[in-house]
Every structure is written in structure tokens, then in C-alpha cells.
């Protein structure tokens, strides 16, 4: 008996090993290495600078750096813009495409296309649209008599321009998840509401939305994590500029690590932002879930 148990354990171990190894090589080792790096002075381009242990110096520098907090704020601004619009549009479109109308199945598939495009390509597509002078967007705006907007070349518009591109790409994600959730809702409560005479808005507000809430929270959670990491689109469209208008956290970290070559500072910034985002997002979503529970009581 104990013989078989031991053998079973060994077999279990053999099956687990590859997963554990892959996890270690791809996740744990880089994390630990980055943590180690964050306590060091490490300039990749300047080997003559001693790569020594500097304690919390990198962390202190970040936490007293205006640029870091600017990047953090810009990231949250962008998140707020994209997430809110994606939520409203995504749910709206989902409500539309789940109607039993002709062509909706096709529309639903077509709407998923932006999501399947690589962010760099999305960036390039929008670069063509935004391109000063030659961009299509300004051409169309011009047709309705509005002046050209310096989309990606003004500090006022650039972040909005990035947000629009991101919204275009990721609204389908919310749409898809919401549509799936909508279709899994049982139809009877809607018939009951129809008979009771509840208005469409009331039905949406009090019947549909509360039932979608858990799904929407999960979708937003995933989007929030993604939005915090946004890089490709910004790199293609503005590279953080003009000025520092679109300098989000990932670009700040990139600049520290690969322009100033301060790998230690970059690593420390990664950790600080990781902690901040984890705490804030957890707090935010916990409170959302709690409000849902209390609302139900």
C-alpha cells in the first residue's frame, strides 16, 4: 500500500516538474532577478560604473521623483478614460448585437477584429488616421467643417488620441464578454417585467445590469491590468510625447531601463508600480464587490 502511495507521489512529481520548471524559468527567476536588480546600481551601457548594492536608493529616488508620479498619474488618467468608455460602449454594443435582428451574428464577428490585431499594427493604423496633414481622421472632421485636430502632436490631445485607439481595440473585449453573459441570462424575468410593464430603462438598470455586474467587474479587472501595461500603441503613436503628455508607467520604466540604462531604477520602478497597481485595483474591485453585496441586502 505504502509502496503504491510512494510511487503515485513520484509520478505526480514527474508530471508536475515541467510546469514547475517552466514557471520558475519564465516567472519566478525573472521576478527574483528584477528584485535583486532593483537594489543595485546597474547601468548596462556604462560598465565603468560599479554595479554595486545600493540598498533602497533606487526606491527612494523613484518615490521622490516627479516624473514617476507624473507617469503614474498619466497611466491612471488613461485607464479612467479607456475603461469608462469601453464599459459603456462595450455594454451598449453587446445589448445591440444580442438582439434577434438580421446580420447581428456577422456584426458580432466583425466587431471582434480590432481585438485580434497586434497592438503595434493598431498603433500604425491609428498613426495613418491621426497623421498630421495627411491623416484620414482630420479629413473627415474637415468634411463636417471642424478644424484639423493635432491628435498626436499636441499635449492637449495626445492622451485622448491614445485612449481612442485603445478604446477601438479593446471595446470588443467588453462587448464579447458582456454578450456572452447576456445570452446566458434566463429570459423569463424579462417576460415577467414585460407583463408587469417595467420600462426598458428600468429593466436594464435593475434587472440586466445587476446580473451583469459580476461579469463586468471581471472584464474591467482584466482590462485594468492590461491598461496598466499599455506600451505598444503609445510607442508607435507618440513615444510618450509630446512633452511628457503620454508618458505612462511602462514608458517611464522603459526609458529608465533602456534610454538612461538604469536597469536598477527601472526594476525598482516596476516593483513600486506593481505594488501600487495591485493595492489600488484590489481595493477598488473589493469595494465594488462589497457595494454589490450591500446593495443586495
Amino acid at each position: 500500500m505504502s509502496h503504491t502511495a510512494g510511487r503515485n507521489q513520484r509520478i505526480a512529481l514527474i508530471f508536475l516538474l515541467p510546469a514547475v520548471l517552466i514557471l520558475f524559468v519564465t516567472t519566478i527567476y525573472p521576478m527574483v532577478y528584477a528584485l535583486w536588480l532593483s537594489f543595485r546600481n546597474y547601468d548596462l551601457s556604462k560598465p565603468f560604473i560599479p554595479r554595486i548594492f545600493v540598498g533602497l536608493a533606487n526606491y527612494l529616488e523613484i518615490l521622490t521623483s516627479q516624473a514617476f508620479f507624473h507617469a503614474l498619474l498619466t497611466t491612471f488618467k488613461l485607464m479612467a478614460m479607456t475603461l469608462s468608455v469601453q464599459l459603456v460602449l462595450g455594454v451598449g454594443i453587446a445589448l445591440l448585437v444580442t438582439q434577434k435582428l438580421p446580420g447581428m451574428a456577422v456584426a458580432r464577428t466583425l466587431l471582434l477584429i480590432p481585438m485580434m490585431i497586434s497592438p503595434v499594427v493598431v498603433g500604425l493604423v491609428w498613426l495613418f488616421l491621426y497623421f498630421p496633414e495627411l491623416g484620414y481622421l482630420n479629413y473627415f472632421i474637415g468634411l463636417v467643417g471642424l478644424g484639423p485636430v493635432p491628435w498626436i502632436t499636441s499635449t492637449r490631445w495626445a492622451l485622448t488620441a491614445i485612449a481612442i485607439a485603445d478604446i477601438w481595440q479593446w471595446t470588443p473585449f467588453i462587448m464579447m464578454g458582456t454578450a456572452a453573459a447576456l445570452q446566458s441570462l434566463s429570459p423569463e424575468p424579462y417576460e415577467a417585467a414585460r407583463i408587469d410593464g417595467n420600462s426598458r430603462w428600468d429593466v436594464f438598470r435593475y434587472v440586466t445590469l445587476p446580473q451583469l455586474k459580476p461579469v463586468l467587474i471581471s472584464l474591467l479587472f482584466l482590462r485594468a491590468i492590461d491598461a496598466f501595461k499599455i506600451y505598444d500603441i503609445i510607442y508607435v503613436l507618440t513615444k510618450g510625447g509630446p512633452g511628457d503628455a503620454t508618458e505612462v508607467m511602462s514608458l517611464y520604466i522603459y526609458r529608465q531601463s533602456f534610454t538612461f540604462w538604469r536597469m536598477g531604477v527601472g526594476a525598482a520602478a516596476s516593483f513600486v508600480s506593481l505594488i501600487i497597481i495591485t493595492v489600488l485595483i484590489t481595493f477598488f474591485f473589493k469595494s465594488m464587490q462589497r457595494s454589490q453585496v450591500t446593495q443586495a441586502r
Binding site: 434566463s186 423569463e188 424575468p189 417576460e191 415577467a192 407583463i195 408587469d196 435593475y206 434587472v207 445587476p210 446580473q211 455586474k213 443586495a296 441586502r297
Partner: peptide
């Protein structure tokens, strides 16, 4: 009219 459904059709998130 008022209707009572086979699977109750209650709003699951409401008391």
C-alpha cells in the same frame, strides 16, 4: 394580467 412562470422568473439579485 399577471403571470407566474414555470421557473418562477424571479429577479435573482433582488430580495
Amino acid at each position: 394580467i399577471a403571470m407566474v412562470f414555470q421557473n418562477y422568473a424571479l429577479y435573482p439579485h433582488m430580495t
